[in-house]
Simulated assay, not measured.
Amino acid sequence: MNTITITPYTPTYQPDFKRLNLEWIEKYFRVEPHDLEQLDHPETHILPNDGQIFFAKENDRIVGCVAMVNMGESGFELAKMAVSPETRGNGVGKLLCLAAIDYARQLGVRTVWLESNRVLTPALTMYARVGFREVPRVPTPYDRADIRMEIAL
Rank of each mutant, 00 (worst) to 15 (best):
I4W: 04
Y28F: 15
V66D: 10
E86F: 04
Y127C: 08
R137H: 05
V112N: 00
I101C: 10
N90E: 14
S116W: 01
T10I: 15
K80H: 09
Y28T: 12
I46D: 04
C65S: 14
G75D: 02
T121E: 13
I6L: 03
E26V: 08
A56C: 06
A82F: 06
T10L: 13
Y103L: 13
A79Q: 10
Q106R: 10
N21P: 07
T121L: 13
V138S: 14
A99H: 07
V130S: 10
G89Q: 05
Y9E: 06
S74A: 13
A100T: 00
G51D: 01
G75R: 04
S84M: 12
I53S: 02
V109M: 02
A104M: 13
E37Q: 13
R148C: 01
V130D: 10
H41S: 12
N21R: 03
V63E: 01
P139E: 15
D60K: 14
Y9R: 12
K80Q: 07
G75A: 04
A82H: 02
V119K: 14
T3I: 11
Y9M: 05
D35K: 07
Q52M: 15
V135G: 00
I46K: 02
L78N: 08
L153D: 09
I62F: 02
L36Y: 12
V69P: 00
H34C: 09
M126N: 06
H45K: 08
A128F: 00
P136Q: 11
T111H: 10
Y127L: 11
P141S: 06
W113F: 14
R129D: 10
N117F: 08
K80C: 02
V119I: 15
V109S: 08
V135T: 15
D60H: 15
K57P: 01
T12C: 08
M126R: 01
Q38A: 06
G51P: 06
V112W: 00
R110N: 12
N70E: 14
N117W: 13
W24R: 10
D50Y: 09
T5E: 14
Q38D: 03
H45I: 01
A145V: 11
R88P: 02
Q52N: 15
G91H: 13
S74D: 09
I25R: 11
R144S: 15
L20I: 02
R61C: 10
A82Y: 02
G72I: 10
T121D: 07
E58Y: 01
T10P: 01
Y103T: 04
P11S: 08
S116M: 08
A104R: 09
E134R: 05
V135Q: 09
G131D: 05
H41Y: 10
D50A: 07
L95V: 06
I101Q: 09
Q52S: 14
D16V: 10
M149V: 11
G51V: 09
C65E: 02
Q38M: 11
G91A: 04
R129T: 12
V63I: 14
D40M: 05
E26N: 15
P15M: 14
L124G: 04
A56H: 00
Y127E: 02
Y28M: 06
F76S: 03
L153M: 07
G72S: 03
T121W: 07
L22W: 07
